[in-house]
Structure formats: structure tokens, C-alpha cells
Design a protein around this nucleic acid. Structure first.
Length: 744
RNA sequence: GCGCGAUUAGCUCAGUUGGUAGAGCAACUCAUUUACACUGAGAAGGUCGGGGGUUCAAGUCCCUCAUCGCGCACCA
């Protein structure tokens, strides 16, 4: 019987006509779900599991090209594992991204002239949820367009009911273990976002600033330097180095300054090791309420704390010159006053790092506030008296968790060494509400302001029964708290008997951008080792940023951003996937250009035409995967091909996808098409029946193998071609077996 | 200040345990309807950032300098 060549091959390959259709076939097959694979007999029920969780994209809009790169790398790993017969799960989800989402919606409302306070908490949250839902739908749709073989039946959201239960359960456990505590400390306050943020959410921006050197008063014996004169109205001490002979006579004395720009100061001279003799005047004005370092000094020396700046970055002391003025205005006023009083000794332009909030851009104001923290230095009984820091460090040090590329291991250690307690409470509305209730009393309860540690506290997974006597903490949790639980909250935890949890945790690979190594990867290790006593994943594969052709960051304002959907529409998702993979080693930034994508679109078509040639040259073939009557010439070619497959299989296992993609490209094009097919024309038109049959089988067999190894990279075109291959009893290509390099 | 990268063809990048410098893209010359013009053949293009060292042998290992990029810390 003659095999009819599909007439589709007479036209160039058209990804537009193909990709949506193919994705639908995959979805309807159910094979994205490992349970279905077992049910339908394509995966052995005792097969080794392989699991990845998708780093949940933020529901702040749409996917960018970086997401497309992430989806591609992960889909390659997943499809490869599935074709190797593993019980393969890739679990999707999205992230509520607390601050990021809330501030996006706030900005949108601002355009309509609406403030969130006008709406109130409930109404505002409805708006955020609507926005989040729309973003979610867009994101899911985009992920499908990229060909991601995610198990949609297990989709999760960091703020849905199951994840909320996980969050409350984790919080309660940490509270009971005294890992979570409430404390009055200097925190990073974002006046723009009106919330506290963690150290990791600070972005340093180098800016020019003026450093002023002056005395508090004419009689004061020591000059000090600062870039923030307005904070000096909150000074309670001047610190000098203990061995600084210039100032030793003054140590221990207290000076009263009756009028420092309208404010009375009591300044004690103290000696502290942390002061550098050679910096500035060698003397440091101590402002305990508005500097982390100063607060530490103040604590060591029992100094009073005097808050002079409020949550709106406005002054709370002084007279009309500074009272209620923004810090920047007050600064000018004080400098002006210093000049008039002849106290200013020096004014110098320096460059300094200004702390800004990652999401709002607001300049951070250190303020003393009562907040919730995770203690990273407390010894934990259930974990061999190790601290969270140690728990995070150990599995990476001893190789239980491998980071690829491994130079990031040192970066990780470096971060842990400098780690302070993690502030987890946020004064925003969109997020997991803190599962803590305070007893209402008549006079001592005002939310978050006068409320002190002596209030009766109830912390539990569920609210107290006599709820009318209690008020829940108004704050929500840092978004990374729920993200930290992601590897197991998505698999059924806190039900520790959940089948998925038992089967798939620890997960195999966590693939994500190196930019969230601390935010996310470290926090997952923290949560998993502490809560479950096991690592969250065995391998961490870090990818870099996708930049434009000139190496610049892609951004809307530069106009160089490539929209993954737009280019997929134009060149096909397969071409976009290939161009995102090739030339991209782990941990390195990569470059993207339309030229590159176009090249891989041509490749898809090349493969299409190779198929056309092979099928039209073998019209009577009865493909036999175990054919053994090969000519000597063909045996040589088989040897070479199988060597090639062996090599790329090894490289797949070493996560060198950028290499494998390129090698398959080269083998198919430069070797198979340009040389082998050209030579075949002579053999196929000749009279040697044996040689002809051998060559037909070889061409067909090699095409089959190319389709298989290429499938993880270019799933759409390979599946489409596969569907038209005259092969008996074939499955979908996505669940076919990855070729073995050894011949029987 | 501490740490991490990078520097190889015009551009983007590979380069395994040290063993005759590789690929893609671009540009150049030729072929002209071929399975495929979303094509084929060919040629060109490199003191591997500089200097020093180890070695029979260094793009690769060691030291040093330079330039670029990044992270963390400091930021009186």
C-alpha cells in the first residue's frame, strides 16, 4: 500500500494554522496530567516521579519575553522527562504579588481620580481582585500559546483558599515556636506606599547629595557631619571612637542645646567602637529613631529615642520653620538656619546610595515601628537546635541542593551571612491577613499605633470563638511568605498525607531567574527545611535576563521590548522558543532579536521540507524501527547518528539545553539535509534494491529520531509532522519515548 | 569595602580532563527552480583584553593589570 503524502507539505509550514490546534489536542489528551498518563498506560505506575513547580507569574499584567524564556526552559525539561517515561508533573500557578499588584491598581485608579481610601478596604479589594483575575486569564492564555505542557488541573494561586490555609498553618507553627515575633524596631518605611518593606525590597540608587559639617551650637565642642540635617533634631548623643584622643575629655558629659532651629536637644557624648575615626570629623550624631545603626548604638548606651519624622516623611517637632514640613523642606530650613548662625563649617558634594522602595520608588524613611518579624537566629528545638540561617545554609553546603551554575552558591552564602530578621508584616490590603487577633479593651486599642506588647494576643489558624471581643491585625503578609511555601502548599500541605505531597516532594528542579535567588529560592529553602524538615528541591537552575540585540534591558519606555505573543504570531512559538534557548547558558543574560527568531522560523520550514522529501522518497515504506538489513554505508551513518544522540542525551542531563538545541539544528540541517539527503538522491534513483531499502529505512528512522529529540524544543512543528508520519500504533509525540542511543 | 561574572570572527556565543581556534547570524562570490529561495555551494574573517608564570604543549591552569557588567555591605 502506498503512503499518500499529505498535501499540506506542498506549502511552506504555517505555524499559525498549526499551533493552537496542536495545543488543543495535547490538552484534550490529558497527558499534561501524570495521573492520566498512568491511567491511559503511557506512563508506568511505578515510574520515577519528576516534578517542577512553575514560578508563579505576578498577576500584574501580561507575560514578557523573560517569562517566555522561563516557560521554554522549563517545558524543555518537562517534555524531556516525560519522554523518558517519568511520572512527570509541572504544576502551574500565579502569584498575587501583594504590593506589586496593589500599587498597580492604585496607579490605575489614580488616573480616574480615585483614591483607595475613598473606596474602603472591601471595595478596593474587589477592584484588585478583578484586575488580578483579568491578568490571570491573560497569563494562562499566553502560557498556552508558548506550548507549555502544564497540568492545568492542579493550578494554584498564592492567595486562594488552600494556599491561605497553608499560610495560616505555617504562621501559627512559627508563632508557637517563637520564630515569629512582634517587635518594636527600626524598619524600612516606604512613605509613598505607606507600608513597611523588607531589606530585600530596597533598591539602592546612587545620587548626588550634600554632606554638611557643623556644630549643634556655638558652645558645643564637637563638629559632626551629615547628609540629613533635618534628622539632627532627633539626636540624643554624639558618638566618638573610644581611642580618639581628640574627644576623650568629653566622653560621658551631657550638653544641653536650648535652641537648635527651635528645638531643644540633650546630647550625651559617648564612646563606641563602631565609629570610624577617619570618617568626616570622627564624630557621629546619633539619631536613634531614624537610623538602624544609630538605634543599635542607642541600645548599647541606653540612650533615649526621639522620633521626629512621621509616616508621611514630615517633621513632628520644632516651630513653623520645620514642623509638619516634608523632610526635604526641613533640611533646607535647617541648613539656612545653620548658615545664619554661623555654625556651618563645610558643605561638600558627595555621591551616596539612596534607599528606594522596589515597587513604588519611594525614598525609604527608617522609622521605629511595631511589626512582625521572623527570627533567623533563634535555635529551633525540632530541628536539632539549628537556626533558620543554618537550615538555609546546610543543604547547599552539603550538596543536597545543587545550584546551577554553581558560582551562585557563593552569592547565596554571602546573602545568608548578612541576613537580618525578616520583617513580614505589610500595611497593605491585598494579601494574606495576619492570623492574629488582639483583645478589644476600652482605651488601649488603636490599630498599630498605641497597641503595645501588653495587649492580649490570640494567634491561631482560625479566628477566636468570641470574635466580637477581638480585632484582627489589619496587616497582611509579605508576598514572599506565601511564595516560600509554594513547593508544598501546591502539593496538598498542610495535609501531610496528601498523595501529591508524598509523591512529588521534594521537587526535582526549581528553575527561575537569578534575580529572585534571595527573595524566593532562599525563602523556599527556609520554609521547607523548617516546616517539613526536608529540602524543597534538589536542583536550582538559574536563568538570566533577556536583553535586546544591543544588550540593553527590554522595557516599554525604550520601545525595544519584544512581546512574546506578537513575535510568536509572526514567526511561530517554536521559533521563539528556539531563539530563547540557544546562546543562553544558565546564569547568563541573553540577547534577543527578530533576526534570530527569523532564523529558527526558517529552520521549522527546513524540517518541514526534509519531511516532504523523506516521505515522497519512501512512498512504499513499511517503517520498521528494528530493521536490521542496513548497508555498510548506512551502518556508518547510524553509528554517527547514535553517537550524536548519546552526546545530546548526556548534555540534556547536564542541563545544557543551549548546546543541545544548537547541535540538533546543525545535525538536521548541515549533516542530514545538506549531505545525507543529497547523497541519498543517487542511491534512491539507482537500481540496487538492497541499498535503496536500507537508505529508505535509515532516512525514515533518522527523521523519527530527529522529531523526537527536537520535540522538547519545538513541540508544535514536530507534533504536527509526527501526526502525518505513516507509522503504525503511534502515540502523540509528546508521550513517545526519547530515543535510546544503543541499537539492539 | 567584600564578592561574582565577562573580555574568543563585524554581531551573538560555544570551546569538555591543557593537545592543530568552532557554530549561528550578518556581510562577500557563485548557482537559479531544486524536497526546501523560509534554498544550495564556496571563499573570507581571530596575536583568544594586556603583561608575566607553570608546562613538551595554555583560549583552557596560576599571578597581575585593564575595561565593562552585576550582587551585597557601607552610606556620619
Amino acid at each position: 500500500m502506498e503512503n499518500d503524502i499529505n498535501s499540506k507539505f506542498l506549502k511552506p509550514y504555517d505555524p499559525k494554522e498549526t499551533e493552537d490546534k496542536i495545543y488543543k489536542i495535547w490538552e484534550e489528551s490529558g497527558f499534561f496530567n501524570p495521573d492520566v498518563c498512568i491511567e491511559k498506560g503511557v506512563t508506568d505506575k511505578n515510574a520515577e516521579p519528576f516534578c517542577m513547580v512553575l514560578p508563579p507569574p505576578n498577576v500584574t499584567g501580561t507575560l514578557h519575553i523573560g517569562h517566555a524564556a522561563m516557560l521554554t526552559i522549563e517545558d524543555i525539561m518537562i517534555r524531556y522527562a516525560r519522554m523518558q517515561g517519568k511520572r512527570t508533573l509541572w504544576l502551574p500557578g500565579t502569584d498575587h504579588a501583594a504590593i506589586a499588584t496593589q500599587s498597580r491598581v492604585e496607579k490605575n485608579l489614580e488616573k480616574e481620580g480615585i483614591k483607595k481610601s475613598d473606596l474602603g478596604r472591601e471595595e478596593f479589594l474587589k477592584r484588585v481582585e478583578k484586575f488580578a483575575q483579568d491578568s490571570h486569564d491573560t497569563i494562562i492564555n499566553q502560557s498556552k500559546k508558548m506550548g507549555s505542557s502544564l497540568d492545568w488541573s492542579r493550578e494554584a494561586y498564592t492567595l486562594d483558599a488552600d494556599r491561605n490555609l497553608a499560610v495560616r498553618t505555617a504562621f501559627k507553627k512559627m508563632y508557637d515556636d517563637e520564630i515569629i515575633y512582634r517587635g518594636h524596631r527600626i524598619v524600612n518605611w516606604d512613605p509613598k506606599g505607606q507600608t513597611v518593606i523588607s531589606d530585600d525590597e530596597i533598591v539602592y540608587e546612587e545620587r548626588k547629595a550634600k554632606m554638611y559639617t557643623f556644630k549643634y551650637s556655638k558652645d558645643f565642642p564637637i563638629s559632626i557631619s551629615t547628609t540629613r540635617p533635618e534628622t539632627k533634631v532627633g539626636d540624643t548623643a554624639v558618638a566618638v571612637h573610644p581611642e580618639d584622643s581628640r574627644y576623650s575629655d568629653y566622653i560621658g558629659k551631657t550638653f544641653t542645646i536650648n535652641d537648635f532651629c527651635g528645638v531643644k536637644l540633650e546630647i550625651k557624648i559617648i564612646a563606641d567602637q563602631s565609629v570610624e575615626k577617619d570618617f568626616g570629623t570622627g564624630a557621629l550624631g546619633v539619631t536613634p529613631a531614624h537610623s538602624q545603626i544609630d538605634a543599635e548604638i542607642a541600645q548599647r548606651h541606653n540612650l533615649p529615642t526621639k522620633q521626629v519624622i512621621n509616616e508621611f516623611a514630615k517633621m513632628t517637632v520644632g516651630d513653623e520653620r520645620i514642623l509638619d514640613k516634608k523632610t526635604t523642606i526641613a533640611r533646607e530650613a535647617i541648613v539656612e538656619w545653620l548658615k545664619n548662625e554661623n555654625l556651618l563649617e563645610n558643605e561638600e558634594e558627595i555621591s551616596q546610595n539612596v534607599s528606594t522602595a522596589e515597587r513604588t520608588g519611594g525614598i525609604i524613611e527608617p522609622l521605629p515601628k511595631l511589626q512582625w518579624f521572623i527570627n533567623v537566629n533563634k535555635q529551633i528545638k525540632d530541628r536539632d537546635n539549628k537556626t533558620l540561617k543554618e537550615l538555609m545554609l546546610e543543604p547547599v553546603k552539603n550538596g543536597e541542593i545543587k545550584i546551577i551554575p554553581n558560582n551562585f552558591e557563593r552569592v547565596y552564602y554571602n546573602w545568608i551571612e548578612n541576613l537580618h530578621d525578616w520583617c513580614i508584616s505589610r500595611q497593605i490590603w491585598y494579601g494574606h491577613r495576619i492570623p492574629v487577633w488582639y483583645r478589644k479593651t476600652i482605651n488601649n486599642y488603636e490599630l498599630g499605633i498605641t497597641n503595645e506588647n501588653n495587649t492580649e494576643i490570640y494567634c491561631n489558624i482560625n479566628p477566636p470563638e468570641d470574635i466580637e471581643n477581638w480585632e484582627q491585625d489589619p496587616d497582611t503578609l509579605d508576598t514572599w511568605f506565601s511564595s516560600g511555601l509554594w513547593t508544598f502548599s501546591t502539593l496538598g500541605w498542610p495535609n501531610i498525607e496528601a498523595k501529591d505531597l508524598k509523591t512529588y516532594h521534594p521537587t526535582d528542579v526549581l528553575e527561575t531567574g537569578y534575580d529572585i535567588l534571595f527573595f524566593w529560592v532562599a525563602r523556599m529553602i527556609l520554609m521547607s527545611t523548617y516546616i517539613l524538615g526536608e529540602i524543597p528541591f534538589k536542583n536550582v537552575y538559574l536563568h538570566g535576563l533577556v536583553r535586546d540585540g544591543q544588550g540593553r534591558k527590554m522595557s516599554k519606555s525604550l520601545g525595544n521590548a519584544l512581546d512574546p505573543l506578537e513575535v510568536s504570531e509572526k514567526y511561530g512559538a517554536d521559533a521563539v522558543r528556539m531563539s530563547l534557548i540557544i546562546g543562553t547558558g544558565p546564569g547568563n543574560d541573553s540577547r534577543m532579536s527578530e533576526d534570530k527568531i527569523r532564523a529558527y522560523k526558517n529552520y521549522a520550514n527546513k524540517l518541514w521540507n526534509i519531511t516532504r522529501f523523506v516521505l515522497s522518497s519512501t512512498p512504499n515504506i513499511k517503517y520498521d524501527a528494528n530493521f536490521n538489513n542496513y548497508s555498510n554505508v548506512d551502518l556508518e551513518l547510524i553509528k554517527e547518528r547514535d553517537e550524536f544522540i548519546k552526546e545530546i542525551t548526556k548534555e540534556m542531563d547536564e542541563y545544557k539545553f543551549y548546546l543541545v538545541g544548537e547541535k540538533i539544528y546543525q545535525y538536521t540541517w548541515s549533516r542530514f539535509a545538506d549531505v545525507i539527503i543529497e547523497e541519498s538522491k543517487i542511491i534512491l534513483s539507482g537500481n540496487d534494491k538492497i541499498a535503496k531499502e536500507s537508505r529508505e529505512q535509515f532516512l525514515f528512522d533518522t527523521l523519527v529520531k530527529i522529531l523526537k529529540v527536537l520535540h522538547p524544543f519545538m513541540p508544535f512543528v514536530t507534533e504536527e509532522i509526527w501526526s502525518m508520519m505513516p507509522i503504525d500504533n503511534k502515540k502523540l509525540l509528546m508521550v513517545e519515548e526519547w530515543p535510546k542511543s544503543e541499537r539492539p
